[in-house]
């Protein structure tokens, strides 16, 4: 067996990584006339799952119905769903090339695994709800709308950084 030493490579300089990310975003603008996103794919997947389990319930719920489309094609044939598939593939590829593939729970030294996972779950749920209220997450609003000088996106960004810095102190044990 080949012995690739598992020494994770350092991450890229943030400016160059950001430049690459910006070019990807620009290509989305030029090719598609829209930006990047993430949370919408999860909403579509949730709506499709609810529809698969309880079709009547999903169709009568306006929140899900919006993501189910007109029924002529699968709701999963959605731009963001395919984009997020790509995000998984691209992220895996980059992590593999950087020798950063590893199954583990990432946390600070002062917190146990159980609480860390509970917090991750809570954070995920909060962010999903927040993204629905704000009509987008950090990718769809901050990144995309920021570059398009969208008024709502800049208001959103103020909210994100404000909210995060306001509570960061109380959760410092999780990370440091």
């Amino acid at each position: 067996m080949d012995s690739v030493q598992d020494n994770p490579q350092p991450y890229w300089n943030p400016y160059w990584a950001g430049f690459g990310l910006g070019l990807v975003l620009l290509s989305a603008f030029v090719i598609m006339g829209r930006g990047l996103g993430a949370s919408g794919a999860f909403t579509t997947a949730t709506a499709a799952a609810v529809h698969a389990v309880a079709p009547a319930h999903a169709e009568s719920n306006s929140f899900y119905a919006e993501y189910l489309g007109d029924g002529t094609r699968s709701p999963l044939k959605d731009w963001l769903v395919f984009e997020v598939l790509g995000v998984f593939a691209g992220g895996f590829l980059s992590a593999a090339l950087g020798h950063r593939l590893r199954f583990f729970i990432e946390k600070g030294p002062q917190i146990a695994s159980g609480p860390r996972l509970a917090l991750a779950f809570t954070g995920g749920a909060m962010m999903a709800v927040g993204a629905k209220i704000a009509l987008g997450c950090t990718s769809g609003q901050a990144l995309t709308g920021g570059a398009l000088l969208n008024v709502g996106s800049w208001a959103f960004m103020l909210g994100v950084f404000g909210g995060a810095y306001a509570v960061a102190y109380f959760f410092r044990k999780q990370w440091r």
């Binding site: 067996m1 080949d2 690739v4 598992d6 590829l93 593999a96 090339l97 020798h99 593939l101």
Partner: peptide, 13 residues
């Protein structure tokens, strides 16, 4: 991925 594995660029996954 398999080409990279065979070239010892990444580990087998």
């Amino acid at each position: 991925l398999q080409t990279l594995e065979l070239a010892h660029r990444i580990r087998h996954t």
